[in-house]
Computed example of a mutant assay.
Amino acid sequence: MQPTGIVRDERDPTFDLAAAKLARGLSGLTGRAVADGNVTDGAIVIGTAKSARIAGLGLPLQSLGREGFVLRSVAIKGKRTTVVAANRSIGVLYGASRLLRIAQMTGSLTDVSVTDRPKLGLRLLNHWDTVERR
Protein backbone atom coordinates (compact mmCIF):
# COMPACT_ATOMS: atom_id res chain seq x y z
CA MET A 1 0.00 0.00 0.00
CA GLN A 2 1.43 3.36 -1.03
CA PRO A 3 0.89 6.28 1.38
CA THR A 4 -1.52 8.81 -0.11
CA GLY A 5 -1.85 11.50 2.57
CA ILE A 6 -1.64 12.36 6.24
CA VAL A 7 -4.86 12.84 8.19
CA ARG A 8 -5.04 14.48 11.60
CA ASP A 9 -7.86 15.94 13.65
CA GLU A 10 -5.60 17.55 16.27
CA ARG A 11 -3.21 20.47 15.98
CA ASP A 12 -0.25 21.46 18.12
CA PRO A 13 3.49 21.93 17.43
CA THR A 14 4.29 18.28 18.10
CA PHE A 15 1.56 17.06 15.72
CA ASP A 16 2.86 19.53 13.14
CA LEU A 17 6.34 18.06 13.55
CA ALA A 18 5.07 14.46 13.29
CA ALA A 19 3.06 15.26 10.15
CA ALA A 20 6.00 17.10 8.55
CA LYS A 21 8.36 14.23 9.40
CA LEU A 22 5.99 11.70 7.82
CA ALA A 23 5.42 13.85 4.74
CA ARG A 24 9.13 14.40 4.16
CA GLY A 25 10.12 10.80 4.88
CA LEU A 26 7.35 9.10 2.91
CA SER A 27 7.79 11.49 -0.03
CA GLY A 28 11.47 10.64 -0.08
CA LEU A 29 10.80 6.91 0.05
CA THR A 30 8.08 6.88 -2.59
CA GLY A 31 9.21 9.68 -4.88
CA ARG A 32 5.68 11.15 -4.71
CA ALA A 33 4.41 14.06 -2.64
CA VAL A 34 2.61 12.98 0.55
CA ALA A 35 0.83 15.87 2.27
CA ASP A 36 -2.24 16.53 4.43
CA GLY A 37 -5.22 14.77 2.97
CA ASN A 38 -8.48 12.95 3.58
CA VAL A 39 -9.23 9.40 4.62
CA THR A 40 -8.57 7.43 1.43
CA ASP A 41 -6.89 4.11 0.75
CA GLY A 42 -3.27 4.53 1.84
CA ALA A 43 -3.86 7.43 4.25
CA ILE A 44 -1.72 7.71 7.38
CA VAL A 45 -4.01 8.77 10.25
CA ILE A 46 -2.30 10.27 13.30
CA GLY A 47 -3.83 11.26 16.62
CA THR A 48 -4.67 10.61 20.25
CA ALA A 49 -7.79 9.33 21.99
CA LYS A 50 -8.95 12.98 22.09
CA SER A 51 -9.79 12.53 18.41
CA ALA A 52 -13.18 10.88 17.90
CA ARG A 53 -11.74 9.10 14.85
CA ILE A 54 -8.95 7.49 16.92
CA ALA A 55 -11.14 6.83 19.97
CA GLY A 56 -13.64 4.99 17.77
CA LEU A 57 -11.01 2.45 16.72
CA GLY A 58 -10.80 0.86 20.19
CA LEU A 59 -7.01 0.67 20.21
CA PRO A 60 -5.26 -0.36 23.48
CA LEU A 61 -3.99 3.12 24.39
CA GLN A 62 -4.74 3.11 28.15
CA SER A 63 -1.70 1.04 29.13
CA LEU A 64 0.85 2.84 26.95
CA GLY A 65 1.80 5.71 29.26
CA ARG A 66 2.59 9.18 27.96
CA GLU A 67 5.19 8.20 25.33
CA GLY A 68 3.93 4.84 24.06
CA PHE A 69 2.18 4.38 20.73
CA VAL A 70 0.22 1.96 18.55
CA LEU A 71 0.74 1.48 14.81
CA ARG A 72 -2.03 -0.44 13.05
CA SER A 73 -3.34 -1.13 9.59
CA VAL A 74 -7.09 -0.61 9.93
CA ALA A 75 -10.13 0.18 7.80
CA ILE A 76 -11.75 3.56 8.41
CA LYS A 77 -15.01 4.10 6.53
CA GLY A 78 -14.06 1.19 4.28
CA LYS A 79 -10.67 2.70 3.38
CA ARG A 80 -7.39 0.89 4.10
CA THR A 81 -5.32 3.16 6.35
CA THR A 82 -2.37 3.04 8.71
CA VAL A 83 -2.93 4.59 12.14
CA VAL A 84 -0.34 6.16 14.45
CA ALA A 85 -2.11 6.59 17.81
CA ALA A 86 -0.94 7.51 21.31
CA ASN A 87 -2.12 9.09 24.53
CA ARG A 88 -0.12 12.26 23.91
CA SER A 89 1.30 14.01 20.87
CA ILE A 90 4.86 13.05 21.87
CA GLY A 91 3.86 9.40 21.50
CA VAL A 92 2.54 10.17 18.01
CA LEU A 93 5.93 11.69 17.14
CA TYR A 94 7.76 8.55 18.33
CA GLY A 95 5.24 6.42 16.43
CA ALA A 96 5.80 8.42 13.25
CA SER A 97 9.54 7.75 13.51
CA ARG A 98 8.93 4.02 13.94
CA LEU A 99 6.51 3.96 11.01
CA LEU A 100 9.13 5.55 8.78
CA ARG A 101 11.67 2.96 9.90
CA ILE A 102 9.21 0.17 9.04
CA ALA A 103 8.52 1.70 5.61
CA GLN A 104 12.23 2.02 4.93
CA MET A 105 13.09 -1.50 6.06
CA THR A 106 10.16 -3.38 4.51
CA GLY A 107 9.11 -1.11 1.65
CA SER A 108 5.49 -1.62 2.70
CA LEU A 109 2.91 -0.29 5.13
CA THR A 110 0.56 -3.24 4.67
CA ASP A 111 -0.42 -5.21 7.79
CA VAL A 112 1.41 -2.99 10.27
CA SER A 113 0.85 -3.99 13.91
CA VAL A 114 3.16 -2.50 16.53
CA THR A 115 2.55 -1.57 20.15
CA ASP A 116 5.35 0.24 21.97
CA ARG A 117 5.35 1.12 25.65
CA PRO A 118 8.67 2.39 27.00
CA LYS A 119 9.92 0.73 30.16
CA LEU A 120 11.09 4.10 31.51
CA GLY A 121 8.82 7.05 32.28
CA LEU A 122 10.64 9.39 29.89
CA ARG A 123 12.80 8.66 26.88
CA LEU A 124 16.17 10.37 27.18
CA LEU A 125 18.82 10.98 24.58
CA ASN A 126 22.53 10.85 25.27
CA HIS A 127 24.07 13.62 23.22
CA TRP A 128 27.53 13.08 24.68
CA ASP A 129 28.72 11.09 21.66
CA THR A 130 27.82 13.97 19.35
CA VAL A 131 30.02 16.47 21.21
CA GLU A 132 33.31 17.13 19.50
CA ARG A 133 36.08 16.18 21.87
CA ARG A 134 39.40 18.00 21.73
Rank of each mutant, 00 (worst) to 15 (best):
65 G>Y: 14
68 G>E: 03
13 P>F: 02
134 R>H: 06
80 R>S: 13
54 I>S: 00
54 I>V: 10
20 A>K: 15
114 V>W: 04
17 L>S: 11
35 A>I: 07
12 D>V: 05
27 S>M: 11
12 D>C: 14
71 L>T: 09
11 R>T: 14
53 R>E: 01
119 K>Q: 05
15 F>M: 15
39 V>E: 06
119 K>F: 01
94 Y>W: 15
14 T>K: 08
81 T>D: 05
42 G>N: 03
10 E>Y: 06
68 G>S: 11
7 V>Y: 13
125 L>Y: 09
117 R>K: 15
26 L>R: 11
33 A>C: 00
21 K>C: 04
104 Q>M: 08
56 G>V: 10
78 G>S: 10
85 A>N: 10
14 T>L: 12
93 L>E: 08
76 I>G: 11
108 S>R: 10
62 Q>M: 05
35 A>C: 06
132 E>N: 02
75 A>V: 04
54 I>M: 01
11 R>K: 11
102 I>R: 02
126 N>S: 14
98 R>H: 07
128 W>G: 11
107 G>F: 07
46 I>V: 10
54 I>G: 00
89 S>I: 00
88 R>W: 02
76 I>Y: 07
124 L>V: 09
95 G>R: 02
116 D>N: 03
36 D>Q: 12
14 T>S: 02
80 R>W: 00
97 S>P: 00
11 R>M: 09
29 L>T: 09
127 H>W: 02
101 R>E: 11
8 R>H: 15
36 D>N: 13
51 S>C: 03
110 T>A: 13
18 A>M: 12
5 G>Y: 02
133 R>Q: 13
77 K>W: 03
45 V>L: 05
15 F>C: 10
105 M>S: 14
84 V>G: 08
96 A>M: 06
111 D>G: 05
18 A>F: 07
65 G>E: 05
77 K>Y: 07
83 V>S: 06
9 D>Y: 03
12 D>I: 03
101 R>F: 01
87 N>A: 04
85 A>W: 08
57 L>D: 04
